[in-house]
Nucleic acid binder design. Structure first.
Lengths: 230, 230
DNA sequence: TTATATTTGTGTAAAATTTACGCATTTGGA
DNA sequence: TCCAAATGCGTAAATTTTACACAAATATAA
């Protein structure tokens, strides 16, 4: 056992949000005195007595005042020894999805600026955070096709067209509206509500809701969610 | 920046091999004096000036004398603060596949016993290594269905029946021999050779070879490998 | 020499799924 | 009252998956 290992362990959070046909990611900017620094993913060093999951939740809360229930481990970045020029730091990256209600909260502590950025308009980030984000987007795209996670980015009750647009937007693909609807409905994991959406124009649309229990039940039977495109 | 972080960073290697319809994993047993300890995955602490990938390759070489080209990052285990009772250690786990020729090499340094274990007959391992292995097996199963990695476990030239048995064995499923063959051949990623296998009984079988270049070319066109079962 | 056991190699029809595509419905506003 | 805009549904064609059986090639035993 080498006793002189000098490597720090950090966590970073990639938090995705969705609104108005746009995918967003949560970034912070640390205020060093008066000078502004790069934007970066929320994150920081892990404490000795907390789990990695606890660390990422804590850092997110501290830096953005946002609370997230479920984080999925994305990847551990540690092959570039100089990814942090100050010290050897490896970072365990986690990603999370939040519904649009969280997008309105403009958390702003004294220590940092916090902002939702459109993923299409990400600036040059600190460290290797552009790389981390790229990997997170890839994972998000992949997961969207084989797990019903799109619902996590939408309000509890949503329109079919919103779901459809979410898929089109994030996956950057065309979709046949009718076949998409048929497919999703055939799984039986979303249910109609009695509510209608207040739309400005066109025929009023039913609001739908994801049925988590039904999905869990299907999973036990070996069900496998999948959305493919031509 | 906290300066008193006291967390060690380790890597662990899950190396899978395959022979005679059996999936194997490489384990080591450290010799502490005369007393024998638990079997464990190869691995150890990362050095300050090496990447994570380098670390796992080095440890594997040191402990088992086996060299592996490609490691894929599996997961980082760090939520259980006491997974190593001596210190807080997080471990970045990597997995690799080797062809059956490596199974014969019984590497054995002075410091440790090295052995290939059938995954069906894994003993209680050190630390949380049973958990890590479980996760690795899940990943292997999943990957087998959506990436052509089965070939990595077979010799360069192999029989269709070997490939078929590999899938049946690892995924623990029945398979229709004819449909499987049709499916794989339809992808055009494996090619016949002029060689035949020296079999003891039955009709002699052609040897096949995975065509990596063809697969890479198809990938660029958006091809997606997939093997599903009823 | 012949019969037998054993494993490889191939084809086809039915079923299921995916794709392509059009039109009626409902509302707000001109 | 007509029009614009978006929702909601159905069907035929194409493709993919599934189920299933028999001939071919070799070694061995009779």
């Amino acid at each position: 056992m080498i006793e002189n290992q000098n490597i720090r362990v950090a966590v970073d959070a990639i938090v995705f949000g969705y609104q108005n046909n746009q995918l967003y990611v949560l970034l912070i900017q640390q205020k060093f005195g008066s000078k502004e620094s790069y934007w970066a993913l929320p994150g920081g060093l892990v404490k000795n007595d907390e789990s990695l999951q606890e660390a990422v939740k804590r850092e997110l809360k501290e830096e953005t005042n946002i609370t997230v229930n479920y984080f999925e481990q994305l990847f551990t970045f540690g092959d570039d020894i100089f990814r942090d020029p100050r010290n050897r730091v490896i970072s365990v990256a986690y990603f999370a999805l939040v519904d649009s209600s969280k997008l309105k909260i403009k958390a702003d502590s004294d220590a940092e600026n916090v902002q939702w950025y459109k993923v299409e308009e990400i600036p040059a980030l600190a460290f290797d955070h552009n790389l981390i984000l790229k990997k997170a987007i890839e994972r998000l795209k992949a997961k969207l096709t084989y797990e019903p996670i799109g619902f996590d980015l939408l309000p509890k009750e949503f329109l079919f067209s919103e779901l459809e647009n979410l898929y089109c937007t994030i996956l950057e693909k065309e979709i046949d509206r009718r076949n998409f609807r048929k497919k999703i409905l055939s799984y039986g994991i979303i249910q109609e509500t009695d509510n209608f959406s207040p739309v400005k124009t066109g025929r009023p649309a039913k609001l739908f809701r994801f049925n988590q229990q039904k999905y869990n039940a299907l999973l036990k039977e070996g069900f496998h969610f999948e959305i493919k495109f031509a």
